[in-house]
């Protein structure tokens, strides 16, 4: 565990807490893509199949449980909670996420480290995580205005990806046998998806104005 990895995990956790807080405090999920949240829930469920078979550390197992539980809690709120559910704007959240799931699964069947049940699902979760933010970014783009908490949610998610890349560079330099191309290449693709959002986030931050994405 290095400082970049820890910072990455913490910003990841923070992003989810910011989102839960926003939904809980306002009893509204406006501006939040349910499809992205469902994709993340699938990502965590598919990746942490090893929760009961491989023990890495108490920290690892604890975080896995937290990520699974919090992502399911968000999906539950958006689908079941009577007040939150009503605020969900289906018209704006139109991204066809089933195609992402199918494409990522096919890719995982072809590109994986080992052809075993867990490894294929692990690769699938890595690919799906890389593109899971797309429905959210498209929703933000379509609605134009981004409220502060939704902006912060995406900002922290992007920061998490940035820290993970620094973590991989650090590990590559310090651990002689560190090679994991699937995770690293997917991670770089995922981080690149945030570049555009970050650009506008920093401009609005610099000008102290509300975040607005161009149409």
């Amino acid at each position: 565990m290095n400082i970049f990895r820890l910072a990455g995990d913490m910003t990841h956790l923070l992003s989810i807490i910011v989102l839960l807080l926003k939904i809980y405090a306002t009893k509204s999920c406006s501006g939040v893509s349910r499809k992205t949240q469902e994709l993340y829930a699938i990502v965590f469920l598919a990746r942490y199949l090893d929760l009961f078979t491989d023990f890495i550390s108490v920290y690892n197992s604890f975080m896995k449980v937290v990520f699974i539980a919090s992502s399911l809690a968000i999906v539950w709120c958006m689908r079941v909670h009577p007040m939150v559910r009503r605020s969900y704007d289906k018209e704006l959240d139109t991204f066809r996420h089933y195609f992402l799931i199918a494409a990522c699964f096919l890719l995982a069947l072809v590109l994986h480290e080992k052809f075993t049940f867990q490894e294929v699902f692990w690769a699938f979760s890595i690919y799906l995580e890389a593109v899971a933010i797309l429905p959210q970014l498209v929703l933000l783009q379509r609605s134009g205005n981004v409220d502060n908490l939704t902006g912060q949610y995406v900002f922290f998610l992007g920061a998490y990806r940035g820290f993970y890349i620094l973590n991989w560079i650090y590990r590559y330099l310090t651990e002689p046998r560190f090679t994991r191309w699937i995770a690293c290449v997917s991670g770089v693709v995922q981080t690149a998806l945030y570049a555009d959002f970050f650009y506008y986030y920093f401009i609005s931050w610099k000008n102290n104005s509300k975040l607005k994405l161009p149409a």
Binding site: D9, D50, D54, Y164, N167, R177, A183
Partner: peptide, 10 residues
């Protein structure tokens, strides 16, 4: 354990 398939990250 085999380094390649060890997933120690989240």
């Amino acid at each position: 354990a085999d380094v390649i398939t060890e997933h120690d990250e989240l």
